[in-house]
Computed example of a mutant assay.
Amino acid sequence: MVAASATSASSVTAASPRPLALARWLFAVATLVLVMVVVGGITRLTESGLSITHWSPVSGALPPLSEADWQAEFDLYKQTGEYRNVSGPAGMDLAAFKFIFFWEWFHRLLGRVIGLAFALPLAWFWLRGAIPAGYKPRLLALLALGGLQGAFGWFMVRSGLGTEMTDVSHFWLSIHLLTAFFTLGGLVWTALDLRQLDRQGHGTPARFTGLALAVAVILFLQLLMGAWVAGLNAGLASDTWPLMQDRLVPEIDWSNGVVWTFTHDPFWLHFVHRWWAWVAVAALVIMARQVKPLDRRASIAIHSAFGVQILLGIATVMTGVALWLAVAHQLVGALLVGAFAWGAHVLGRQAR
């Protein structure tokens, strides 16, 4: 009788929801995504993204293990337009190829690690009955986003593997990067919902308010422009600030049509990205002022993130896109997304 009671009690304990444990796990995965954003930035800025010309989800976890394997990978890279038109004429040897190969391989390896860091704990929490009611679909959606991120990454690489291509498509680069930011925001939002559930023991998740949606659209456009600027190397269009080519508005080529100019012209995109930033700042300030009476820490996080981001953006331009400044700019962009998600969640909790 006693043994049966103990077994029953153990089963009840095992099946109890653990929202705080899940929240901590999601914050840990979000941290890994931030690391991924940094490594992705380094991969892009060192022109490493096209060094691996195939997608091998399982065997690709290991780097080449012999000189013959390295030479085979190098020979595949030599068939790309990037090598024929850029790297090859610059005199790339096997040692230089190993350097760029490392960053692309590490980027992909980290993606595998993040996938396992999400999928395995998710399965464990699921089997233990630790996931609160209503959260399983959301967690599965986040898992699916991670899988899409890997697929988008390959489509991005494949877009640059043509014999005449020297870079990946900036459209695919923006999809790849913005999916990472969206996933990061989803991780933070869900973790905050779970933490709130742990504190209150009941209640409905926060909702997205009208103000948060408006700011999200403005911020999305700024991040999209930033991704296109990165993909087209448009950061090199000017190394002065606030003027470009000694003018407020640079000379822009409209001969290919408005649509092409809006989506491809490096001078136009650089110009829009640097000045739309102030629209984003204004929107974030308005949002942060609404957040401050409810959670001062979230307001400070938003102000700090966009302030540092603006300074890093200016410094990146004026240094001719120095690698570590550009990487820091991308990292703080991700932190800004996290701070925005935090502030939007605060407003959403209040609305509930």
Rank of each mutant, 00 (worst) to 15 (best):
L65G: 04
P205K: 05
M165P: 00
F99I: 12
I314N: 02
T209E: 00
V35R: 01
E82Q: 15
L34S: 15
G129S: 14
A28E: 03
A117I: 10
A298I: 05
E67L: 06
D69M: 10
I42C: 00
L142D: 05
W25L: 00
D246H: 07
V259R: 12
K292P: 00
A277H: 11
Q350W: 13
A280N: 11
A206M: 01
S10I: 07
T7Y: 01
G348N: 09
F220V: 01
L236S: 02
W189R: 15
L20F: 12
Y83K: 14
F267L: 09
W260M: 11
V35H: 01
L127Q: 13
D295A: 12
S174G: 08
L142F: 05
L178W: 10
F27E: 02
T163N: 14
V157Y: 00
H345S: 12
L20P: 00
H176P: 04
V332P: 04
E251H: 04
G147Q: 11
F99A: 09
S48Y: 01
F27S: 02
H345P: 02
A28G: 14
Q330Y: 01
M244D: 00
G134M: 10
N256Q: 10
F171G: 13
V37Q: 09
I302H: 04
R352H: 02
S304T: 14
F340Y: 14
G235E: 07
V86I: 14
S59H: 02
A212I: 08
G338K: 15
S174W: 07
A96S: 09
V272E: 07
L331E: 10
T166Q: 15
L294T: 09
V258R: 11
H202F: 11
S56V: 06
L26Q: 02
R352G: 10
V337P: 05
V285D: 02
F101E: 00
F271M: 08
W124N: 03
L221M: 13
V317A: 01
G257V: 10
D246W: 09
L32R: 06
R352W: 00
R349V: 12
S66R: 03
A334E: 05
G162T: 08
G111V: 11
R297C: 05
S87V: 02
H264E: 03
W70P: 05
V258P: 03
W25V: 03
Y83I: 14
S299A: 14
A315E: 06
G88I: 13
S10H: 10
V37W: 01
E67N: 07
Q350F: 08
I131V: 12
L142R: 07
